[in-house]
């Protein structure tokens, strides 16, 4: 912000900084994300209700260890993003930047794990439309269709979240997010928590269903 703009902003202190408004907007947006995944959860429950045994059997093909490790990775990243906001509120910009870096690194670890996991399954012939999958009963085909769709959609959200955090780090570095003006970082943190929360539902539905 240039000096004259800062003067204008100082003259209208309450005009463009409606923190509560920003938060309401963000929460409403998160709500739409929950409904988006909610549609998938409805599809999942409908098909699991129709094919309980096939879902149970197909879930056995997934690697529970990678699933649990990835859960821990995401939970830790939620902690670090929360800490980065606290650090900024206490005026410790460097620490805050570092914690955003930790969050992004953990997000990358999650994606790398996901990459190896998917590669392994695809290597075993378990991907939508594969000859091997088409030999299995319909319930197992649906399980893997849902598995790739839902974890893929979640993965896309992780990538979006990482991009947003990257922008936040840049803004923080440029002092456009400050100890007295941190709503953007807080909202980005909320988005990251959402990504985390959705994963916590995906873990039992796919990995622990065996």
């Amino acid at each position: 912000m240039s000096a004259p703009e800062a003067a204008v902003a100082a003259a209208h202190p309450a005009e463009h900084r409606d923190y509560q408004g920003s938060k309401i907007g963000m929460w409403l947006f998160l709500f739409t994300e929950l409904v988006l995944f909610g549609g998938m959860f409805i599809v999942y429950s409908a098909y699991r209700g129709m094919h309980p045994d096939a879902f149970h059997k197909a879930a056995g093909e997934l690697n529970v260890v990678i699933g649990v490790v990835n859960t821990l990775v995401l939970l830790t990243s939620s902690l670090s993003v929360a800490l980065s906001i606290s650090a900024l509120q206490r005026g410790r910009k460097g620490l805050s930047l570092g914690l955003i870096g930790v969050t992004m690194a953990l997000g990358l670890v999650f994606l790398v794990n996901k990459y190896f996991e998917w590669s392994h399954e695809i290597h075993n012939g378990l991907y939508p439309g594969s000859p091997h999958l088409m030999d299995l009963p319909p319930g197992e085909r649906l399980f893997f269709g849902l598995y790739y769709t839902m974890t893929g959609l979640h993965g896309a959200h992780v990538i979006i979240g990482l991009t947003v955090l990257g922008v936040m780090a840049w803004l923080l570095n440029k002092d456009r997010i400050r100890a007295d003006d941190f709503i953007k970082l807080e909202n980005a943190g909320l988005y990251w928590h959402l990504v985390d929360v959705i994963w916590i539902f995906l873990l039992p539905l796919f990995y622990l269903a065996a």
């Binding site: 599809v43 098909y47 939508p128 009963p137 319909p138 269709g145 790739y148």
Partner: peptide, 14 residues
């Protein structure tokens, strides 16, 4: 694009 089968009765969907 990927024939995930969720809506395709040929694969098992409804």
């Amino acid at each position: 694009l990927f024939h995930i089968g969720i809506f395709d009765p040929a694969i098992g969907g409804d």
